[in-house]
Design a protein around this nucleic acid. Structure first.
Lengths: 216, 216
DNA sequence: TAGATTGTTAATCGATTAACAATC
DNA sequence: TAGATTGTTAATCGATTAACAATC
């Protein structure tokens, strides 16, 4: 039974996953425009990808379309939302209440997607007690107690890289399984069931820089 | 001659480019540790990639190693820096002086890499005149004059998505060729010689969310 | 010199695109 | 029904890995 499951369950490549939020975004726009149905051909033109890729991508998760008709926009939007886990709520804590941490806490867009920041943490006394859209900045020494008494799904690391690895491993030991890492390091976490998503801003800037120089 | 050039010039894939900043980061660490030379084998273990990929990647840009010896850390570090354009200065302006814009302006790390923020722009009166590490927040109405009188290499867009596309195209018309886009939209710029690097934070969060749900 | 490790070619693997039968 | 468009298989393309001759 277990064997059968693992055999049937085809792993979906991260290349596909990376494209799903973009589909979700475009379908949201179509929805706003009042478009009811769309074919892979039309969508492909809008998004500058091949229609083949769209159909192939979607069929990793099931047949959401109908021959001769195309895809129902609102249905597909909902389905991709479910695939991405947007049908459930995710509580976020942010470690590092500097500008970046505060910026993340301020994004109302994340709330609309089901991601709710419930606390920020920092070590700087002048930040403790500060309130961002009703979200309080707490001292890091309260982290353990907070995590044990709240439902925390994601920890965003927006503190300096020097402490990132220690904090990350500590959070994992507290039972956190998902880390959104903005620190400029690759975290070394041995636990196998922890997912890490990196946002390396300086890497992104260097990529841009490469393309600038190449362009000249 | 032109034909010959374009034939010889093999386009390097973005997959390779995306890995270069990571090599740069690890080499920087080795440098800090005082390591003088490293083989692709040792580096591959540290970075959890194949030695083959490292050699293949580097050889897109030239032979930086030596048979029987490996790679000289500081030389390779310098060379990758050059490839990524870190041997030159890049002036950045940030459009949108909210938390995210301020966070970017505050990153001293970028300065160390040669990326200097020289101004922020916003429309909110309460932000105008504010000073971040000596960088002033100006009103957007001064944008044209500023760009014409300064050497601006990169524009970072950290304002709401509603105005992102208009501003982006306006910046391009002012002669800016590189955009670091944090707005949650795909910019539609027709100019062919403009490079855009997107940082879609909500896409990143959704990817994380997918992996959380899959993990359960 | 012998040993180590690169640079590079060849083999494999995976992802994208094309094609088309199934079907609404 | 005829036309449109999907779902899916097959073909192509590109990226990764393996292998090894070149050479320090």
């Amino acid at each position: 039974m277990i064997l059968e499951d693992s055999v049937l369950e085809k792993e979906i490549s991260q290349a596909v996953i990376r494209r799903m939020p973009r589909y979700y975004r475009y379908l949201g726009e179509l929805l706003d425009e009042g478009v009811e149905r769309i074919s892979s051909g039309e969508l492909s033109e809008r998004m500058s990808v091949t229609a083949s890729q769209i159909r192939q991508d979607l069929n990793n998760f099931g047949g959401f379309g109908q021959q001769g008709y195309g895809y129902n926009v609102s249905f597909l939007y909902e389905e991709i939302g479910k695939i991405l886990g947007l049908d459930q709520n995710h509580n976020i804590i942010i470690i590092g209440a500097g500008n970046l941490g505060q910026a993340l806490a301020n994004y109302m867009k994340f709330d609309r997607l089901g991601f709710h920041t419930i606390a920020l943490f920092d070590v700087k006394e002048e930040l403790i007690g500060k309130n961002i859209r009703g979200i309080e900045v707490l001292h890091v020494k309260e982290l353990d107690h907070f995590v044990k008494t709240h439902d925390v799904d994601i920890a965003a690391l927006t503190m300096p890289k020097s402490s990132a690895d220690d904090i990350a491993n500590h959070l994992v030991s507290l039972g956190i399984h998902a880390i959104w890492n903005f620190a400029h390091v690759d975290l070394s976490i041995d636990a196998k069931d922890v997912v890490v998503e990196n946002v390396h801003l300086s890497d992104s800037l260097m990529q841009l820089s490469y393309n600038i120089v190449k362009n000249k």
